[in-house]
Amino acid sequence: MYKLIAIDIDDTLINDEKEVTPTTQKALEAAVDKGVVVTLATGRAYASAQAIARQTGLNVPIITYQGALVKNLLDEKVLYERYVPVVAARRLFEFCLERNLHLQTYVDDKLYAREENQKLLDYSALNKTPYYIEPVFSKMIEQPTHKMLIIDEPDHLDEIAPQLRELLGDEVHITKSKPYFLEIMHKEGTKGHALTFLAQHFGCDMSETIAIGDSWNDHEMLECAGLGVAMGNAIDALKDLADYVTLTNNEDGVKHVIDKFVLNAG
């Protein structure tokens, strides 16, 4: 029996209208009623993720910043966190400055950028996240941050990702959450690390966990979960490694998983 389900938010739990459908909501509630811990696992900041979690009525720790922060919804107690190493953050800042790349960071759950531009405006609108401008951005680099993010064309990000891995070393984890977003966290700031932590926290074996996602930043949690599920709209690479492929986010794919594997509704 599965005891813990970790669900990605964007293009997984929510549909293209950015909504949790009533049928998916009922499935989440039915799983919770059965004693299953349902949590969210997202690259979003805690402030953004917790708004969605509260809408669904979940009252558990949630995985945010790709796994760099696990925090209770009820009392906002931090259970697990990993910061980007400062030396790596400085190198990343210099790299982006030299190449005029858009870099943004989160400090105290607030989004900061060096200047206002279309990339920042679009990101802010997508995640419903307010932002702050700090022209002397080097000040922000010295602050503890769970995640730093470069926004650019997908091909360009694919080109610089190997350069950054070499420059920043194995102390950081670099992943794409969406084609235009290259995200940099601590090496233990992955959804896989966070899911493993939560399973221990709730006293479950990893074989009793389900992870559901659509993007490459979900692969660590799909690989370590007892049942790794890719959405029907997931990238092919994630579908290839998943144990099961469900329906799309516009077809209540999450509900289908809960019905089939948790509520045994076929």
Rank of each mutant, 00 (worst) to 15 (best):
I7Y: 11
D8M: 03
I14T: 12
N15T: 02
E17L: 14
V32S: 00
D33G: 14
K34L: 10
G35D: 00
V38N: 01
T42A: 01
G43H: 05
R44S: 06
A47L: 13
I52L: 08
A53K: 02
N59A: 00
N59Q: 04
I63H: 09
Y65S: 08
V70K: 09
L74V: 12
D75P: 00
E76I: 00
K77W: 13
K77C: 02
Y80L: 04
R82E: 10
R82Q: 07
Y83V: 01
V84L: 14
V87Q: 13
A89M: 11
F93L: 07
E98P: 04
L101S: 05
Q104N: 13
D109E: 03
Y112E: 07
K119G: 00
L121T: 11
L126Y: 13
Y131R: 12
E134W: 02
E134I: 00
S138F: 13
K147T: 01
P154G: 15
L157A: 15
D158I: 11
L164T: 03
E166W: 08
E166V: 11
E171R: 12
E171V: 12
V172L: 12
H186P: 05
E188P: 04
T190P: 09
T196Y: 06
H201Q: 04
D205T: 11
S207H: 12
G213Q: 11
D214G: 09
D214L: 08
D218V: 10
H219A: 09
E223T: 02
E223M: 06
C224R: 15
A225Y: 08
A225G: 05
G226W: 06
V229R: 09
A230K: 07
I235R: 08
A237Q: 09
L241E: 15
A242K: 06
V245K: 06
T246F: 07
N249K: 03
H256T: 04
N264A: 04
A265K: 13
